[in-house]
Amino acid sequence: MKVQIDPERCQGHGRCYDLSPDLFTEDDEGYGQVAGDGVVPAGGERAARVAASNCPEKAIVLVEEA
């Protein structure tokens, strides 16, 4: 699984980096950033789903790999 942030939707609420700081960070203006390459490590799927399901702007995209 990979996480992505749609920069057109993100407004900097910061729920992703509050809830799942291993997967997301903030930039200098508070907008969410994917940490590293966005690949969710084994066992991190739940954290990715929690972040996505709490984003008020629905800006987080989960890409399930085949």
Binding site: Q11, H13, G14, D18, N54, C55, P56, E57
Partner: peptide, 22 residues
């Protein structure tokens, strides 16, 4: 656990002080 609330607004006017308030 799932709480996509809009207390700090939605869209371009998202409360600029939301991190401070929290």
């Amino acid at each position: 656990e799932i709480n996509r609330h809009a207390a700090f607004g939605l869209g371009i006017h998202r409360c600029v002080g939301s991190h401070l308030a929290r």
